[in-house]
Amino acid sequence: MKRKWNCGNIVYSYCTEADLSDIASMLAKQNVCEYLFFGPNKEEDTLAYFSPLINSISESLKANNIPDMHVFTIREKDSGVFIGQCALLPIEFTNGNYLIGYQIDDTQWRKGYGSAACEFLTYFAFSVLSAFRITGDCAEGNIGSEKTMIKAGFKPEGQQKRYWSKNGKWHDRLLFGLTTEDISEEKLEILRSKYD
């Protein structure tokens, strides 16, 4: 089973223990977590969440199986500089439907990495996992994430009122979706040609 995918000077790889320090550092930042339903996190909280995921991914890859969870680290290919992370998580009871997620470290904002991550997840879901649908969400007010998903072809699907409570304040959840009917085979071929 393949573990890394390159696109220009970006490399997406399944998360490993070696990535945890960078992930924990990113998710300890208030501005990175502003629109997330969790965080900022203490390092031990991030490790407690990610370690079982990483162990499960590692065991699957060792057995040459496709992991159940797809959590990727994003780095610059040439320098190895940490950019962020992205993930496809299966949605229960709907085999072939995945929830996307991406967090970009604040040192890497406004460089197009969020859009690149969303594009990679679209490629991976439809070309590697044979998904029939990918689902995205964000807190109302997260204009950057909303624009990123729409640019990638996601369609707005609704709004759930008072979905998340954080720091004593309620936040609405905006829903987005992208199905196999929404993306052409020509677009998928272009995406497949970008990732080696």
Rank of each mutant, 00 (worst) to 15 (best):
M1R: 11
K2M: 10
K4I: 12
N9L: 06
I10S: 06
Y12H: 02
Y14A: 03
C15E: 11
E17N: 11
D19Q: 02
L20R: 03
L20W: 01
L20V: 05
A24C: 09
A24D: 04
N31R: 11
E34N: 10
Y35G: 03
Y35N: 07
Y35F: 14
G39C: 01
N41W: 15
E43Q: 11
A48T: 12
S51G: 06
I54A: 09
S56G: 07
S56K: 15
I57S: 05
S60C: 12
S60R: 04
A63M: 12
N64F: 07
N64I: 13
T73C: 10
E76M: 15
K77G: 08
V81H: 15
F82Y: 10
A87V: 09
A87M: 14
P90F: 02
T94N: 13
G96P: 10
G96M: 11
Y98C: 01
I100Y: 02
Y102W: 06
R110C: 15
K111H: 13
G112N: 06
G112D: 05
A117T: 04
C118V: 09
F120Y: 00
L121A: 00
F124L: 02
F124K: 01
V128A: 07
A131M: 02
A131W: 03
A131I: 02
T135H: 10
E140I: 07
G141I: 03
S145F: 00
E146K: 14
E146C: 09
I150Q: 14
A152L: 03
G153Y: 02
Q159G: 05
Y163Q: 10
S165Q: 14
S165C: 15
K166L: 07
N167R: 15
G168F: 08
G168H: 07
K169H: 12
W170G: 13
W170S: 11
H171N: 08
H171E: 08
H171T: 04
D172A: 04
R173G: 03
T179P: 01
E181K: 15
D182F: 06
I183R: 05
E186C: 08
L188W: 01
L188Q: 03
L188N: 00
E189N: 15
L191C: 05
S193R: 09
S193P: 01
K194E: 06
Y195S: 03
